[in-house]
Design a protein around this nucleic acid. Structure first.
Lengths: 233, 233
DNA sequence: GCGTTTGTTAATGTATGCATAAATCCAAGA
DNA sequence: TCTTGGATTTATGCATACATTAACAAACGC
């Protein structure tokens, strides 16, 4: 591996990003990685100090995070990382299920190139390999790639952006339950079936398979959170 | 009608809203009402002057509008009201169709109270009355209320918020085509059928009816924009 | 002791200052 | 006329200043 390409698309390190953008990414990372756990609060000044910039760009980042639905800005208490309850996850998964099922249908309808299909198959392969070697984190990463690719192939940028946003809201809960849930055997099977349906241009089947896949995942996640009595995170 | 209650929920005019919030609402109003047409640009300073405040709150408002997908911030040119093409409307309607169909299904599944059902029926009634008296704007307003209420009854706040955002993106195009499209007779019929399906708790029918309703509306809108050669707005 | 009031602190919301660099303009040369 | 180089303007991104007011605490009255 070359020395930290850190890439992002362009090869030349012309990545002049604004402080506001850096703040946005840094704060979001802290939240998604759970370094800033649900419920924690961060004052503008604290964040600014931590990130080595003034309050202004931090403030702008917080505004964006609030619109993303991951934090809440409380007038005198800085931003507060929103706890996500089982009920919240129910909401998120209901919408994700609807949108991703539609995405699967769209992909099957419009068809995919050989490379695109291979991309999906590769992701499924990685999931199977990770699962075979009990690498749950690897499985989760490959699973995420699969869903991401599927939605991208639907070719609807708005759909893609919304799904990304919701996935981020669900991210912490998914990580939390990754080792508490049954092994995702069925999940891999679902994905393989979906790939077949897409290859066969069977919109009907693609929608149904992915709908049920997502619905199952949602039920599992919400059930787990409920049964563990998680009122938050 | 009473003298401009302009309400908003509370009766006492304790509406202390921040300048940033005022800027956000004012700018969004200007855009949705087409006073700032698609493609127009507005510098931070100009907007600040116009709204009687400094650049800071205006800047924050613009950031929110950008995340809403209605403007684009171009580093030296202020914000630019995003033109919406037929392709954009295709995207918006595909997502709306998916989500609203799901909402209809959810509402039918969970059932509604007598008052809630009446609310839907009232909206349908208003649409019919408006149509009978050739009041297209009234019809559009009632139609909007119907869809809004339906989604609200689904009881999923994330779904509701996303649908609202997408509806706003489609708003200008809908207004533009309101008088160019055939009379929305079928639309009223669809809504009446949906209300029946909801009352009968028939999820299946509710989803199908509303799916097709939205799909038809989307096709009509996109087709109209296409045929009129609208590359933007 | 306990509720109330008042004083202090501090976080925010907004305004303003300032360096930077993009955009524009202008002139001169090909 | 078209291009090019550089000067100039100016919108921005960020830092900072400042007034406001909520939050907290301490003092006070009961």
């Amino acid at each position: 591996m070359p020395l930290t390409p850190k890439d992002g698309g362009s090869h030349f390190e012309q990545d002049r990003v604004s402080s506001a953008e850096r703040a946005y990414r840094a704060l979001k990372d802290l939240i998604l990685s759970n370094e800033l756990p649900a419920g924690s609060q961060l004052l503008e000044q604290e964040a600014a100090l931590r990130l080595g910039m003034s309050r202004t760009p931090v403030r702008e980042a917080m505004i964006r995070l609030e619109q993303d639905g991951v934090v809440e800005i409380r007038p005198r208490h800085g931003m507060r990382v929103l706890p996500v309850s089982a009920a919240d996850m129910r909401e998120v998964y209901d919408v994700l299920t609807s949108l991703e099922a539609t995405a699967a249908e769209m992909v099957a309808r419009k068809g995919v190139t050989a490379e695109e299909l291979q991309g999906l198959k590769d992701a499924v392969g990685e999931m199977e390999a990770a699962l075979a070697s009990d690498n749950l984190d690897g499985w989760a990463a490959a699973d995420h790639r699969f869903h991401e690719l599927l939605v991208k192939l639907a070719g609807n940028q708005r759909l893609q952006q919304i799904v990304t946003q919701l996935s981020e809201q669900a991210h912490r809960a998914r990580m939390l339950t990754l080792r508490l849930r049954p092994k995702p055997i069925g999940s891999n099977r679902d994905h393989a079936m979906l790939v077949d349906a897409i290859a066969a241009r069977d919109e009907e089947a693609a929608r149904r398979i992915h709908y049920e896949h997502r619905a199952k995942a949602g039920d599992m996640l919400v059930g787990l959170l409920d049964s563990l009595g998680f009122k938050q995170l």
